[in-house]
């Protein structure tokens, strides 16, 4: 069974990704600060069918200094890590001119610094084990603008740059690195969005609707799978044509 680590696997897109990957036969290790009820249910069902296939590790990814130890423990407990999905992020919005610096720092820490450091430790083990897959969850906000999301947008754009250069760096070691850029999906992160805004986004999308969690999870599964073996350094946009 291939091990895939999914950060932020307790809710929203991460939970959908965990569910999809379990169905596809992977062994998943979800990381978040706390386990959620929906994740517990998904894990229970998976472990009944395939014992040991779903795990949860409680960890605060803002604790950069602890990440090396986290990866060491994961390696020890589950063995080779085949896939890493950098999905956890925070989505504070607000006009830059009024945003507390501590909040700016938190966004950059959780959304950019943390996945980069986590990848540093995981990619080494992938190279030593002969290969692997990394999928970074970015956002269409990384290449289009949205008022109130300048810092969030900066962190998501950073993941796109990271994806491209790292793909070049580790390609010859058999590690593929790609990004998925979702459009607006209904999750806790986007709860602040008014119904009217949501409808406007749908109206402006080619398919006249929003993508859902399963659409994004399918894209991640594809990039982890054997059928994507020749794909690296790319961004797969899943936005129902919002930026088309």
């Amino acid at each position: 069974m291939r091990n895939v680590v999914v950060t932020g696997g307790s809710r929203g897109l991460g939970l959908g990704i965990v569910r999809r990957l379990l169905a596809a036969g992977y062994r998943t290790i979800a990381i978040a600060r706390k386990e959620s009820n929906p994740l517990s249910l998904v894990m229970e069902a998976a472990n009944r069918e395939r014992p040991g296939s779903a795990r949860f590790v409680a960890f605060d990814l803002a604790e950069i200094g602890e990440i090396a130890r986290l990866v060491k423990a994961l390696r020890h407990d589950v063995g080779e890590i085949y896939g890493l999905v950098n999905n956890a992020a925070v989505g504070f919005d607000g006009v830059l001119a009024l945003m507390p610096t501590s909040q700016i720092e938190q966004l950059v820490r959780v959304n950019t610094l943390s996945p980069i450091v986590l990848t540093k430790y995981v990619v080494r083990t992938m190279m030593a084990d002969g290969g692997g897959r990394i999928v970074n969850v970015a956002s269409i906000i990384g290449f289009t603008g949205y008022s109130g999301l300048s810092v969030y947008g900066a962190t998501k754009a950073s993941m796109l740059g990271f994806t491209r250069s790292l793909a070049r760096e580790v390609g010859r070691m058999g590690v593929n690195v790609n990004a998925v850029a979702p459009g607006f999906v209904d999750t806790e992160m986007t709860q602040g969005l008014a119904d009217e805004q949501r409808q406007q986004i749908a109206r402006r999308s080619a398919l006249r609707r929003l993508p859902d969690v399963e659409d994004v999870a399918n894209a991640v599964e594809f990039l982890l799978g054997d059928n994507a073996r020749s794909i690296t350094g790319t961004v797969l946009t899943v936005d129902a044509g919002n930026t088309a």
Binding site: R75, R124, T125, M127, A128, V170, R172, M173
Partner: peptide, 13 residues
Amino acid sequence: SLCLAIVVARLED
């Protein structure tokens, strides 16, 4: 340097 990174990862194991 990539090979040295692999050496470091293996030595950690």
